[in-house]
């Protein structure tokens, strides 16, 4: 019995990270209508920076709960800063061009970031386990489960709630949704679309960075992690529907559960199962479960 509880928790854990990845991708797509191929590498950047801070400064420098707050926040801020530079310089000149150019430029950024990781952090994975192991384990029946995973699961739900609140209950969120529904009309109503693009891009990127900052002490920061994450976020996006926050939430839960079932019972075809489900959804409902 307890093994199934652990399966469920693992599914939630995976769903939480996937949600954070897809939520950012969706905000950017929703407002800017750009699929940010560099998104996975912004997540990786958050992971690298967090690990680098912990390794360089030493985890001892952050007493108590600060260990779980300061390093990831530094990671998030670096990612935010990167996004703040990237949007006006690299993306903005492409808005008037055809969509393929926008896709290409984000692909270019993906490659540049990957090379920068290699250049700055070297070819070997960065690993810092202390924050993960310090939290200990909980007993579930006669099995044990790392407490850190509960933290990551909670993070996913907290960000989901915060995003829902931001988008539906605040003036900023309502303005953002109006702009994603009809950009031209929003501009004529007084929305500075140019700066809203920057803000949305930075918010989306920072959520990805946050996911990276929290996952890195559980896994490692390693070359290629961004692309792997991007591919999975795409599956969630396809299942949930482009630009839909509800879709990101439900899609992440579905993919999290499927992935867990895959790893537990059909490890050889784990990824194939995900693609198969994505293909089925695309066939039955091409716009995804919650897409329009």
């Amino acid at each position: 019995m307890s093994i199934y509880i652990i399966f469920a928790l693992n599914a939630l854990l995976f769903a939480s990270v996937l949600f954070l990845l897809t939520a950012g991708l969706n905000i950017i797509y929703g407002v800017m209508r750009i699929i940010n191929l560099a998104h996975g590498n912004l997540y990786a950047l958050g992971a690298y920076v967090t690990a680098w801070v912990l390794l360089t400064v030493g985890y001892q420098a952050f007493p108590g709960p600060l260990l779980y707050i300061v390093p990831p926040i530094i990671g998030v801020l670096v990612v935010g800063l990167g996004a703040l530079i990237m949007e006006p310089t690299l993306l903005r000149p492409m808005y008037k061009r055809i969509e393929e150019f926008q896709l290409l430029i984000t692909f270019g950024v993906l490659l540049i970031l990957e090379d920068l990781f290699l250049l700055i952090f070297g070819p070997y994975p960065l690993s810092v386990r202390e924050p993960y192991t310090f939290l200990g384990v909980s007993k579930i029946g006669d099995l044990s489960y790392p407490n850190y995973n509960f933290l990551v699961i909670a993070l996913g739900f907290i960000v989901a709630f915060a995003l829902w609140f931001l988008l539906y209950k605040t003036k900023f969120g309502i303005i953002l949704r109006a702009t994603s529904l009809d950009r031209e009309m929003a501009a004529a109503m007084g929305v500075n679309v140019k700066s809203l693009f920057t803000v949305s891009f930075v918010i989306g990127a920072m959520i990805a960075g946050l996911a990276g900052g929290f996952i890195v002490t559980k896994d490692t920061a390693v070359l290629g992690m961004g692309i792997e994450a991007l591919v999975l976020a795409f599956v969630v996006m396809v299942i949930g529907g482009l630009g839909s926050m509800k879709g990101a939430f439900v899609g992440a839960l579905i993919v999290g559960a499927l992935r867990q079932i895959g790893t537990a019972y059909f490890p050889e075809i784990e990824l194939a199962i995900l693609w198969l489900i994505a293909a089925v959804v695309l066939t039955i409902k091409p716009q995804g479960l919650f897409g329009r």
Binding site: I174, L181, D182, M185, A186, G190
Partner: peptide, 20 residues
Amino acid sequence: RVFPDLTVEENIKLGIWLSK
């Protein structure tokens, strides 16, 4: 071009919030 997902109230209040 009423924003379809926003309520009538939200559509109208946009202008109050954005006006300078």
